[in-house]
Each structure stands twice: as C-alpha cells, then as structure tokens.
Write a protein that binds this DNA or RNA. Structure first.
Length: 564
RNA sequence: GCCCCCGUGGCUCAAUUGGACAGAGCGUUUGGUUGCGGACCAAAAGGUUUCAGGUUCAAGUCCUGACGGGGGUACCA
C-alpha cells in the first residue's frame, strides 16, 4: 500500500508531466525525487511541496508562476479536497475531510498491520546487535544497543523487509581465555588448591558464583585434567552459562534473538582460513614484525590481523577482531545471502568502520551492503552523579538490576527518544518516578483512557464492537486525531528508510496528545437516544485510535496497558 | 596533532535530511471537571539556533575557520 505522501508525490509527478505535455511550460528535467512534507501550519493544508521552487532556475521564471501553471494539471483524487498555490511557489494539498473520516474503518480493519509499508519487500536484512563479550552479565552499557537494534529490526519488518536478529558471540578471543583463567582460579581456590588469579582476569563476584555452581554440580573433576584443558572446558561451560543469563536478561527487556552466532564456528568451518587465503591472493596481506597485517588503499595504516607470538604467546590469542569480522561478513552476505547487514555499534568503535568496509571491498562484497549504526554513549545518572560502568573493574550495574528497578517500558522509551547522534543521560531517579515528569506514561495513559472509555461503554450496555457511521466525525479534534492516525505509514517509512527509530516515540507522543485533546472536546459515551449514532461513530474512532497507539507501542517493544 | 558526534528558550531534546512563521516535554505563571480515569487539558512568558565568514531563490541543517563538551586514535577486546 502506498503512503499518503507517496500518493501526493504521484499526483505531483503526473501534474508536472501533464504541464509539459500541454506545452504550458518550457522543457525541463523531471526531478528524480519530488519533495513532499507534512505541513507545519494549518493554513498550509496537510502536505506541501517546494518542487516548483527548485525548477525556477532552469525555467528562468518565478516559482509562483510555475506553480500556477502546474496547478490545473494536477489530477483530481478522492483523498484531496483542494490544491493551492502559496508564495513563494509552494503547492499545498488539503485532505478531504469526508475521505479522512471514512479511513477510520480501514485503520481498524488493518489491526496489527496498520502502518506497514512495502519499502523493503523481497529483501532480507540482518540486524546484528548487543554482541557483548560472553564473559559476564549484560550491563547497562548494552541497554541502548539492545533497544536500538531490536526496534530497528521491528521497524524494518514493518517496512516489509524479512528481518533476522542476530547476536555475535565472541567466544574465540583472548577475553574468554582470561575469563577461563579467572574461573579456573576461583574454582581451584574453592577446593583449597592454590592458583594465582590472572592479571587480566575478571574479579567480579559473578565469576566466583559461577565457580561455586560448578563445584556443586561437577565436583573437583577439573582438577584432574591438565591445566590448559581444564581452563578450556571451564570457559566453555562458563560461556554457555553466561549466555543463558544474557538471553534471560535481554528477555526481561523484551529483546529476543533469532540466531546466536559463535565466532569459533568461523574457525572450525574453515571459513577463516579461506578468507585469509582470499585476502592473500588479492595482495591485501603484508607480514612484518612477525605479524600479519591487512593493507588497503583506503586505509591510512595497516591493521593487524594475526598478532606476533611475542605479543600473544597463546595461538588462540593471535587473530584480532578484525580478522574474524571478515569471514563473518562473508558468512552473512554471501553464504547466508542477506541483502543487507546492519551493525549496531557504540560510537567508541567508529574507528573500526573504515577497516571493515575496506575488508568487505577486498573480499568482493559491496561495502554499501553493510550499514553501521553508531550510537553515542550513555551516561548513567543516580542522584545527579555519574555511575561508571566497567565489566573488568567488577564495578557495574547490570541490565538485570536496571530492569528490575525500572521496568522495561521506561528504559525502552527513554533509550529511543533521542537521535543516535547525541550522548544520552539516563537518569535513574527520573526513570523510576511515575509522574508527569516522566514522558513514558503519557502515551500509555492515552491507551488506558481509551480502555476506560470502552469499559464505560460496556457498562452502559453499548456494543463495543459496533461499526459506527464514521462520516459523522466532523469535529476538528476528531479530524486532527484521524490525520495523525493516517500518518503512521509515512512515519514508519521514514524511520525505516533513514534508520531513525526516535521518530516512533515522537509520533506516539503527538498521537497521545491529539487523543487527549479529542477526549476533552468530544464526549464519547452518551446514552441519550439522539446521540446513538454519534456515540457509535466515536466508539469506532476510539477503537481505531487504540489500535494505532498499541501498534506504535508494540513497535517500540512496550506494553499497551488497559489499566495502569 | 588527526578522525567521529554534539552545541537550538532556565533544563532535556525535536525539526520529515536544504524549504514556509524553529516545535515538544520539564520547570515558571494563570486558569479548567457537581459528565467516559486530572498520570489530563487550555493559556502565557521564555530564541540573533555558540561565534565569524561563505554557498543558495531558500541554511538550525551544506562548506571554511574559531570556541566549548563527549568519544576514538594500541600487535585492547
């Protein structure tokens, strides 16, 4: 289904073609994209286009004159009441109010699919996000990543893409070695065997707890193995346990993954070696200082792929992250055949983007098929003070603690409200606060209010499923609400096309505000006989509005409560 | 030093990607319900969009420079 904006764009395109065919204007090149935007002022109608302004130079005429020439050639359409010209040359479209009122039933009939668009039909996209090291619980540091990735995936699905959510498990690097060593040390110590704690180990309490659980379940059998074997066995067991916890913690935030991709499989499958060979054949590998480097004309400096034994005595420590990223992107885009891969990364990794893109190019994958969402950091505030987070220091707030304290809805809403380009201050005190200072409840309250109206209707023995005659909806507040409901497809299209999920909370807040205004102006439930038709119409409207609110809340992964 | 992000009413942020008179929330001030949940609504005050140039019919948005804040710049992961 085409969005309103797209339909207006088509009218304009037809108008521009017509005006040329009629010879009313000199020859000009039809713009590839015709800008159409919702109007900001009521006096400008519902949608406006500055397209004639852009044509002024080529046609050597005042834009106002061009607009006036185009105007009579714009085809009529049932959803448009009036097209007008406004200085200095805008073409403004006012929607037909009778048409608007009739759309309410369509919104209601669409149910959960209202707002879906066809932008990505036939394309498969993978969103890879969170992907935190599997060496400990998820911290608040990953909360923004988790919410952004999840909602981007939902948005793309609403835009017609076939979407897969993936978690990349870094289970092959030196971090897991340190993790295994830490676990082994705690395990041995618990059994009164001396074992020094590794220098770069994980001192946090969860490692000890994990070791206790293993002692309780498995006894001392790991002490009978060679040390290296025991460490390997322990970190495998530990990672599996940690990942169960990670999945559970994320589920509390309503984040779920379709696939958990383990880095080690890149090595066991031989893809890692195959890609290294491919890079070598392409002349992208250089060796010096006992290390192997990736060299590419787009990169200022060589990037290490395989460390030297001097730096990394243990062979499993030698491949770098970048070395794995290359077979991994191949696996995504070639072996699994995704058309598009989205990576959700913190801005502290922005320096890695050019390297991965250069590597993609080097192995023959068009870099444009990779998109990196770089979101700025989150600073956590408690009592106005910044809370520092670091897994290795052992001092951090887990995602679990945050969700238990605040609940998923405020976290998700607040993580979504800002653009990814600004650093986000997450105020714990405000998030917990259930008041009008907290914007989260404003939207949910609108949904609750509608549920209240429907409960009231049921008490008055009105049929809540009635389909009223929506042509009776003519009040300005009714029409304003309907206009906003009908804007959801365009909002989803825009948010998906530009990967800007912050448009959702913005839209939800505006929709809620228009509902609240409607609620003030228009009494819904009336038992007076002369109001029966209008009550039916308004109940229909209110149900449709509830449907749209629920849709947006669900896209954001939030609850749409009937009671609060 | 170099690279990335940000700078918009007192505070936190939007602005449909270059379009019309820069919009919301919080805070402040004033008002609103003997009717569907007041976690609501309405009104007011508050702006030279950090500064200086430039491009354009049109700049918060693009370019150059300056100032301020955050992040990055390892054979760290």
């Amino acid at each position: 289904m085409k969005t309103l904006r797209e339909q207006i764009e088509e009218l304009l395109r037809a108008g521009l073609q017509q005006v040329q065919a009629a010879g009313a204007l000199p020859e000009f090149a039809l713009p590839a994209v015709i800008a159409v935007a919702p109007s900001r002022h009521e006096s400008h109608g519902d949608y406006g286009s500055p397209v004639c302004l852009g044509l002024a130079r080529e046609l050597r005429r005042p834009p106002l004159q061009i607009a006036q020439a185009v105007l009579p050639h714009i085809p009529a359409a049932d959803f448009v009441a009036e097209v007008t010209v406004a200085p200095p040359g805008y073409l403004n479209f006012a929607l037909s109010e009778t048409w608007l009122a009739q759309q309410v039933t369509a919104v209601l009939a669409a149910g959960d699919t209202w707002g879906n668009v066809a932008l990505g039909v036939g394309k498969r996209v993978q969103v890879e996000f969170v992907s935190a090291n599997p060496t400990g619980p998820i911290t608040i540091g990953s909360a923004r990543n988790a919410v952004l990735g999840d909602v981007l995936a939902s948005l793309l699905a609403a835009a017609g893409y076939a979407v897969e959510r993936e978690y990349y498990v870094n289970d092959a690097g030196s971090k897991v070695q340190h993790f295994g060593g830490s676990l082994y040390a705690r395990y041995a110590n618990l059994l009164d065997v001396p074992e020094p704690f590794p220098e770069q180990g994980y001192p946090a309490a969860y490692v000890t707890e994990l070791a206790q659980a293993i002692v309780a379940q498995e006894g001392r059998r790991y002490l009978d193995m060679p040390r290296e074997t025991a460490i390997r066995e322990l970190y495998r067991l530990g990672i599996a346990r940690v990942l169960e916890g990670v999945a559970d913690d994320l589920a509390q935030l309503r984040v779920h993954f379709d696939t958990w991709f383990h880095e080690t499989t890149l090595h066991t499958s031989g893809l890692f070696d195959a890609m290294m060979a491919k890079l070598r054949a392409g002349g992208y590998l250089v060796e010096y200082d006992d290390a192997v480097w990736f060299r590419h004309p787009d990169l200022e400096k060589d990037a290490v792929l395989i460390r030297s034994p001097k730096v990394a005595p243990n062979p499993v420590d030698r491949p770098t992250y970048l070395a794995s990223d290359i077979p991994y992107l191949w696996h995504k885009l070639v072996e699994r055949g995704f058309d598009w891969a989205i990576y959700v990364w913190g801005a502290d990794h922005h320096g890695d983007v050019p390297r991965v893109q250069a590597a993609a190019q080097a192995v023959g994958v068009t870099p444009a098929r990779l998109t990196f969402i770089l979101y700025q950091m989150v600073t956590l505030l408690r009592g106005g003070e910044e809370v520092r987070m670091s897994k290795s220091s052992g001092e951090f707030v887990t995602l679990r603690e945050l969700v238990d304290e605040v609940g998923p809805d405020p976290i998700r809403f607040m993580m979504l409200t800002r653009t990814v380009d600004v650093t986000l201050d997450f105020d714990l005190d405000l998030a917990v606060e259930q008041s009008d200072r907290n914007p989260v409840y404003y939207v949910q309250y609108a949904h609750t209010r509608i549920a209240g109206v429907l409960r009231k209707a049921a008490e008055e023995r009105l049929d809540p499923q009635v389909m009223g005659d929506t042509r009776l909806l003519t009040h300005p507040s009714e029409l304003a609400l309907i206009r906003k409901m009908l804007a959801l497809p365009d909002t989803i299209a825009q948010a998906a096309a530009n990967l800007t999920p912050h448009l959702l909370p913005l839209y939800a807040t505006e929709l809620a505000a228009l509902f609240h205004a409607f609620y003030r102006d228009c009494r819904v439930v009336s038992t007076a006989p002369e109001d029966a038709a209008l009550t039916s119409a308004r109940l229909t409207l209110v149900r449709a509005a509830k449907n749209v609110l629920a849709r947006v809340l669900h896209l954001m992964g939030m609850n749409a409560p009937d009671r609060m």
